[in-house]
Amino acid sequence: MIKIAYYPGCSLLGTAREYDESLRAIVKKMGIELVDVPDWNCCGASSAHSLDHDLSVALPGRILMQAESLGLEDLVVPCAACYSRLMMARHELMEDAALKARVCEMTGMEFRGTVRPINIIEFLQKYSDTFTDKITAPFDKDVACYYGCLLVRPPKVTNFDRPEDPRSMDEIMSLLGSKPVEWDFKVECCGAAHSITRAGLVGKLSSKIIGNAVHRGAQAIIVACPLCHSNLDMRRNFINKAAGRKYDIPVLYITEAVGLAMGIGEKELGLHRHTVKVRYPEKVKVEAEPRPKAAAATKPTPAAQTEQTEEA
């Protein structure tokens, strides 16, 4: 059995319980064992790095050091914010010897850099063989893959996918039998933690994301971040208020989609915990929409061939 270190982070025990549940459900079928990082702590999230730089590295740094004790290489981190903090900490600890010395002193532990955090997309990419052969109920929906801000950025640190127009999640969804739609707000800001203090603002920002996904014909939005999910799902009343219309498009964690495709029950995947009921709107015929030249977008336009100006 493949063993992988696992850092759930606080969201997966709280607002994003279904993310944790669905992940654990799918890995069971995939034949992978998740080993929790022993005695893990808070990653520091936005709070630590807006207050104290050393602390913002020391907190995730300690998680990495704890994970090193497991002797495993990959550390799967489903929360995009945790992933970002862990990647950033690892990057800084590898680059800055003085900082590393300070952090090691704060934690009283040694940092060796043997563990590499991977996000859920990288995890599913790497182990796609273990679920593609178990797909019994293809997730036959038009989906908008929403990456959010932290999964692919900053590119220097994450070194994963294209920062402005990522494709990796779309590729995984294709494996599940979905048709990813071409849409515009894959990495747009959802409002993030402003959800607590300025829910109206989050409603406005998130309504643009939902609006564009619906406009492009998506039947579901697929996410890989607890905060994205809570903003697009739990804040749907603020979104509807900002948009002046009612959206009923469901927002699914990618792990839930994988689980559904593998035939795992909705309850086991935690779908009943969503605020917006998981019911898919009708498929939209994109071609029939009164958007001129929408069809041209999928074909190679002459403009796309300008690079061949010089024959050589």
């Binding site: 402005e164 071409e182 336009t301 403009a303």
Partner: peptide, 21 residues
């Protein structure tokens, strides 16, 4: 030469015909 379309996914160059260089 000029930088190709594949470098500007955020500007829709190559996707929208009215985004040109």
């Amino acid at each position: 030469n000029v930088l190709g379309a594949e470098h500007f996914p955020e500007y829709g160059y190559g996707r929208y015909r009215d985004v040109i260089q």
